[in-house]
Structure formats: structure tokens, C-alpha cells
């Protein structure tokens, strides 16, 4: 396993909530990618976290862009780097770093365009499962059953009815060389997979599971534990897709797997769910897991060689 890098490229004095998983996400990512990295960030929590001018907490170049333009901005940065004589553009990682709303909803065409054009970039979705910066509105990636301010519970309406949008599948269908899911609860494999992504060129996609204690109505001290429970319950499986081949990593052993309920119950956003709904979510998790195992088996076969 790769060494866990000591050097910090994300510093203290930032504006994330106490216990913010998105802060872990940036910290570990920059540890893995190193200082020859540019980051472009659209409107999202991370547009506020680095600080207000003249304060900033990242030791790498940072460009703020409009909410819907992450992929396009990354393409632009790559093109500009290519034109410069004073930089060896092959040595620079261009990262587009957006929330789930910015990636999967409003920014999806820019993402699709950038990866389809074969832009040399790592597109990152830090997934806190809602539009958090503007006060917890649902996104396409918010899981089924969750309370948000736009999927309220009780007399005014109901919880979110639609299942979580599968960004890995959408990206996979663009035939990218590398895509992976990572989880902030496992910093070592997080860093290892980002280092692996760095070895490829062309469009790469990283889906980071980044618990948000504020929006999930959980205790800040449970942020890491939430990531762990999501993994152990198979709610958020860890896997990578390399040139179409699926590989599940850090697979929880059969006897380590816990019911999804364990994960749901420490979050206020799921508190209202009736037993049948918890069972329905469990079923969906089980089905998704079976599908993933089948995809892994199928794509590992010779026809993909």
C-alpha cells in the first residue's frame, strides 16, 4: 500500500462546518496528487470553504467558475496550459472539483462534454448527497428516503422518492480510461486510488463519498463513522472501472456486512422512515450489490481483454 503523504496542501483556517467530510476529501486528494495540480471549483460548499479574499487555504492554484461549467472550465485550463511555453503541461493535473449538484445535475452536460472530448483531466464529484451550500436542497444524487428542505417530511410533503442517480454508470458509458469511488473513512485507499488515477491520462472520474453532518442531521463527530457504515452496509460500494473492467476493492467480508438500518439510524434525515421503507432501501442496496458483482464478473471475462 502506498505511503500516506505527510505534506499538507490544504491548510487550517477554512470555513467548512465542524466535522465536514468535504474537507477530508480535499485534504486527502491533494495529498495524493501533489502540488502540481490546479483545481477549478464551481458554486458549492467548497466555493466558501477556502475563505474570502485575501484568505485562502489551498496551496495550489484555484479557479472559481460558474455552477454549471466545471467540465468546460477544466477543458479550458488544459488548453491554456498546453499553449504556455513555461509549463510542461503533461506534469500538471487539472482537477474539476464539484459537489453532487454541480456534477450530476446542472453540470452534467459540461462533464459529459469534457470527458467525451477526451480532455486530460480528473473530474471529481464530492458527494454530500444534496445542495448543501444553499441549505440542503435535494439533488439527483440524494438517496431515496432522505429528508431535505425541498423534500420535506410531514404535512407539507414527503421525503425523496427517487433513487440515487448512478454517476459511475453514466461516466462509464463514456468509455473513460479510469473511474473510481472512494470514501473519506478510508484515507489510505482514498490516496491510493487518486495516485492510481494520476497514472492515467485522458478523462478520469472520481466519486468521493463525503458525509455532511450538517445536512444529514448527524453529530459532527460521526462523520468518519458514517462513511464506514455506508461502506460496511454496501450502501456505498467501493469499486473502480479501468477501461471498462470493474473491480470491487476493500470488499466487506460476508460476516462484516451490516444491515443498512445501522447506517440510516444515526442520521436525522432518515429518522421519519417507516420500517417498510427501510426494508425497501435494503432491497435496493442488495440488488445493486448483486448487479455490481455481476458486472465485475462479466467485465473481467476474456471478451474485455
Amino acid at each position: 500500500m502506498a505511503e500516506f503523504p505527510e505534506k499538507e496542501l490544504m491548510n487550517s483556517g477554512h470555513n467548512a462546518c465542524p466535522g465536514c467530510g468535504a474537507a477530508h476529501a480535499m485534504r486527502y486528494m491533494l495529498k495524493a496528487l501533489g502540488k502540481n495540480t490546479t483545481v477549478n471549483i464551481p458554486a458549492c460548499c467548497w466555493a466558501v470553504i477556502p475563505g474570502v479574499y485575501p484568505s485562502r487555504n489551498l496551496e495550489v492554484p484555484l479557479l472559481y467558475t460558474a455552477f454549471e461549467t466545471t467540465g468546460a472550465s477544466s477543458s479550458g485550463i488544459r488548453a491554456a496550459l498546453k499553449k504556455r511555453d513555461d509549463v510542461d503541461d503533461a506534469e500538471v493535473e487539472v482537477v474539476g472539483f464539484a459537489g453532487d449538484g454541480g456534477t450530476a445535475d446542472i453540470g452534467i452536460q459540461a462533464l459529459s462534454g469534457a470527458i467525451e472530448r477526451n480532455t486530460d483531466t480528473i473530474q471529481v464529484m464530492y458527494d454530500n448527497e444534496a445542495y448543501m451550500n444553499t441549505g440542503i436542497q435535494r439533488s439527483g444524487v440524494t438517496p431515496e428516503g432522505a429528508w431535505t428542505t425541498t423534500t420535506p417530511v410531514g404535512s407539507k410533503g414527503d421525503w425523496k422518492k427517487q433513487p440515487k442517480k448512478e454517476m459511475m454508470e453514466i461516466v462509464e458509458s463514456h468509455n473513460v480510461p479510469y473511474a473510481a469511488t472512494v470514501n473519506i473513512a478510508y484515507p489510505d485507499s482514498f490516496v491510493e486510488k487518486f495516485k492510481k488515477a494520476k497514472e492515467f491520462s485522458g478523462p478520469r472520474f472520481m466519486h468521493i463519498y463525503a458525509p455532511c453532518p450538517t445536512g444529514w442531521r448527524a453529530r459532527p463527530s460521526d462523520a468518519v463513522e458514517l462513511g464506514r457504515l455506508a461502506h460496511k452496509s454496501r450502501f456505498f460500494p467501493l469499486f473502480e472501472i479501468e477501461h471498462g473492467k470493474y473491480n470491487i476493492y476493500k470488499e466487506p467480508k460476508e460476516d462484516e456486512v451490516i444491515p443498512v438500518k445501522e447506517y440510516l439510524k444515526i442520521q436525522g434525515r432518515f429518522r421519519h422512515l417507516p420500517e417498510e421503507m427501510v426494508e425497501k432501501i435494503q432491497k435496493r442496496v442488495d440488488t445493486k450489490w448483486e448487479q455490481l458483482k455481476k458486472k465485475e464478473r462479466f467485465t473481467q471475462e476474456e471478451l474485455y481483454e
Binding site: 491548510n11 487550517s12 483556517g13 477554512h14 470555513n15 465542524p18 477556502p50 475563505g51 485575501p54 484568505s55 485562502r56 487555504n57 489551498l58 496551496e59 495550489v60 492554484p61 484555484l62 479557479l63
Partner: peptide, 25 residues
Amino acid sequence: DHTDLPRTPIADCDSEYLNKTGSWR
């Protein structure tokens, strides 16, 4: 006070001087 700070998007990290978040605790 601002003149020494960079004006390009190339970040020079100074959140550690300007934003003492210990007060949030």
C-alpha cells in the same frame, strides 16, 4: 495591508493567519 498579497489565482496560502476558526468551538 493588502499590497504584499498575490493578485493572481495562484494561491499563496494565508488562511492560517487570517481565519482563526478556533473561535467556533
